[in-house]
Design a protein around this nucleic acid. Structure first.
Lengths: 364, 364
DNA sequence: ATGAAAGCGCTAACAA
DNA sequence: TTGTTAGCGCTTTCAT
């Protein structure tokens, strides 16, 4: 760990100029084979490794794509995967995988960073300064900051609807058909299962995704002349499993009968609800139907298996990388792109559908 | 995307020196509040974002940890997750997650890069130049290259046994109790299920991990006076699901009865074998017992559920990050650390154990 | 509290 | 083919 060798050291040791050393790494064919060997030999002896920072500074490119996501720490999730790694695969993991894979195919590495919740220094800035372009999961980063950065380098926004007519209009953007999915799932509950007293549990004000889902829910209800409130019946702040369980408690302990169906804005809450209902001796789906949204692996493992809407998170990541690469390579000043990825309604036991294989319907 | 603002632009616009601009970002308290506001204001107007590269160059640190892994493309895996994202979570994903989480806690971001199989430019070099330290999954990188780089910055080797007495002895190193796990699983088959004709399917020469597993297998056999060959009965090159299916074909089509148990060196092959056996009308575990190794999620979803040895991949990633952080912060020239993480034998239906909940035994 | 100036290690013209 | 020479944008003493 003594002193770190640089181009100069290698140049000296091999009797060439630093330019030649540089060439050996960037464009080997532009150097005579014999010279090249001498240089590489010297580099090996010295333990030379080119500094990515210096390279990036000088060439103004990094070969790295970035991904920022929120500090996704559902305490429940922590518990789960302590003993059971696999069930806990979250959104972010799938997105990471999709993005990494695609980035790799294009020769990029991937830098991932989650906002530390106490973190003073702006996350994005840290990432932005080290990559050629990056994706941001919606609401991870203050809009204003994004606006500033996106003047500088390609940014694609993930999974949140484009913020209405805002200043962020010039960003590329990939989202998921939240409303369509929730609408179709709700239609299924109403038409195919004949349910009419549905309760929606979410937290719309915090997330545009959840807002879109609730919109889908209302549309389906309206189409079937089913009454709904203006907003979700219950708003749980974090949408964790614990929140899902609380929702059951609140609903069960108040006057009147339980709704026929609990329509949750995500799977985490739905799973929590399943547990809570079981503890109360209520059967799903006989006594009450439960549905989620997301398609997390856990949803298939719980009993009864959870009916839900599966989001194509892997594709989300892939598309994000693809868009960034396009911007970087081809048209920096092409029109901003906005993609809406289709989701799939997955019917499982918790809505009263058979035990058999999952049955799915894909929706544009 | 016109011109990118720098410290100089911000300095001009706010009427201070570049040093002050720098201070505002690095150490806000060392600047008078009023000045600081002026600078931030100017930065905002200009759309200034500090260049990570320049910063890294000047300060010689990046705040980024790296992870290199092989181009893990099991064609089967691709197929699976096309329709079924969740089952396909691989090793690498878990390691990434563990590492990211721990890195984050220590204020680091994570740079991940998989070797593109045709890739000319050395993967490590690319990563090494951009991070403060990194982890490498065993056999991803030529030993010699690692040796060179590890003189320069902390490197931890993952999941492959330390290459015997080599030049890599000064690297930190985290591995998994492969031999212990396979030994215990094998003992279980022999003692608890009374099996004596066991066939091991792996590919030991390619991977030290598999070698260690086979060693565990032999030890358990020897301890019970069960005969074994010197090497695995079959060596499948890629250890994919297809390979697992082929293994069944080979074993079933040759003379003599099928072994009582097929002990695979990984889950992928075991799952492939399950399918192949089913196609042939053979029942598991009645006609033949099948076991895997790894603990991938898919193993729990197949029928019969797969008995296996679960590796703590998440912890592997966490430990890797932890070791790197320690080296970076504390003792750069402490003795090299070598950790062996415990594994868990997971008994499920494919070995004849009950259908109930998974039963596990953790082994140091 | 702020400024001046010297690098950090590399790439990219432009020469030779 | 190879060498010279400027920077790239920031951090960091050392002054002031």
């Amino acid at each position: 760990m003594s002193t770190v060798p640089t181009v100069y050291d290698v140049a000296n040791r091999s009797g060439v100029s630093i330019a030649t050393v540089s060439r050996v790494y960037r464009n080997p064919d532009s150097v005579r084979a014999q010279t090249r060997e001498r240089v590489l030999e010297a580099a090996r002896e010295l333990g030379y490794v080119p500094s990515g920072n210096a390279r990036g500074l000088a060439s103004r490119t990094t070969g790295v794509l970035g991904l920022c996501f929120p500090d996704y720490s559902d305490p429940d999730a922590e518990d789960i995967d302590a003993e059971d790694d696999d069930a806990a695969m979250l959104y972010s993991d799938q997105i990471i995988r999709g993005m990494e894979r695609t980035a790799r195919r294009h020769g990029y590495a991937l830098l991932i960073a989650a906002s530390l919740k106490g973190g003073p220094e702006s996350l994005v800035a840290k990432v932005a300064g080290r990559v050629d372009g990056f994706a941001v999961m919606a609401r991870t980063v203050p809009t204003e900051e994004l606006e500033v950065i996106s003047r500088r380098q390609p940014v694609v926004m993930l999974a949140g609807p484009r913020e209405g007519g805002d200043q962020l209009d010039h960003l590329d953007h990939v989202e998921v058909a939240n409303a369509d999915g929730q609408r179709e799932l709700t239609r299924h509950l109403i038409e195919d299962h004949g349910l009419r007293r549905l309760a929606y549990i979410g937290s719309a004000e915090e997330s545009p995704d959840v807002a879109a889902r609730f919109r889908g829910f209302r549309e389906a209800c309206a189409a079937a002349d089913v009454e709904t409130d203006h907003g979700p019946v219950l708003r749980m702040p974090m949408m964790t499993q614990a929140d899902g369980a609380s929702a059951v408690d609140v609903l069960a302990d108040r006057d009147g009968p339980l709704p026929e169906a609990l329509v949750f804005a995500n799977d985490q809450m739905a799973v929590g609800a399943l547990h809570a209902l079981q503890r109360r001796g209520l059967r799903v789906p006989e006594d009450v139907v439960v549905t989620g949204f997301d398609g997390i692996p856990l949803g298939r493992l719980v009993r009864p298996a959870l009916t839900t809407v599966r989001q194509p998170m892997l594709k989300l990541g892939e598309q994000a990388a693809e868009l960034l690469v396009q911007r970087l390579g081809g048209g920096p000043d092409r029109e901003p792109v906005s993609l809406m990825l289709p989701v799939t309604v997955v019917r499982r036991a918790s809505c009263g559908c058979g035990e058999g294989e999952d049955s799915g319907t894909q929706l544009a």
